[in-house]
Amino acid sequence: MKKFLKILFCTSLLLFNINYTKAAEKSAELLKVDWSFKSFFGKFDRASLQRGYQVYNEVCASCHSVKYLSYRNLTEKGGPEFTEEEAKAIASNFEVTDGPDSTGEMFTRPARLSDKFVMPYANDEEAKSANGGAYPPDMSVLVKARKGGADYIYSLLLGYEDPPADMELDDGVYYNKFMYGNKIKMSAPLSDDIVEYSDGTKASTEQMSRDVVTFLMWAAEPHLEQRHKFGFRVIIYLIIISILVYFSMKKIWSRIESKV
């Protein structure tokens, strides 16, 4: 028993080690959302993904790229699952540079499904100079690149407030209670009804935040649904085979245990 307690103590210390990041250095307690993709069998809310794409496209895309997504991903299973026609129509709204053609000239053409998402700026320097020196990060894996993940991005979108009286803010700097250091160079991107949802959902700021974060989660982890599905099967299989091996082991060891 004493040993058990020791092991328990050590394990908890170890787990504490692993989870230290959760406790440390947080500006404010993050808003918690019961994301549909969080649980053991978690899946994305398809409609929310589609709305989230709309929010990304109409609001975020003017500054933020998602350079690792391709238009074909929009049709893939486990994603927003737009039809191929819808995705082709989406892609054709964007111009990509291709070439060189037979005369050596580069030319533009409408994007195809196989193209990556078109970036708002040609390079990081252009992105910085257009945004007062602040680089709008690529959003392909943004959810995985921030402590707190989906909850953090969601909180950040809703975390704009008037600064405390004793805080001086420069031009182009905004107060956000969830941002590290509380200062952010992005102005509040969302406000009620800034987009008009085609499915009739009311475009409140909370709703848009939820939808766009769902979209970003999918962008960062496009195989999440498959991963959850596989995980369930693998673990069930491992439990079954463990039981079988356990009884095989008993059987084999019984040969000597009864004989000694």
Binding site: Y237, I240, I241, L244, V245, F247, S248, K251, I252
Partner: peptide
């Protein structure tokens, strides 16, 4: 021919 060993081997092969 032991059943449990056969079943374990078969399940292991599938895995």
């Amino acid at each position: 021919r032991d059943f449990i060993l056969t079943a374990t081997t078969a399940a292991g092969a599938v895995g």
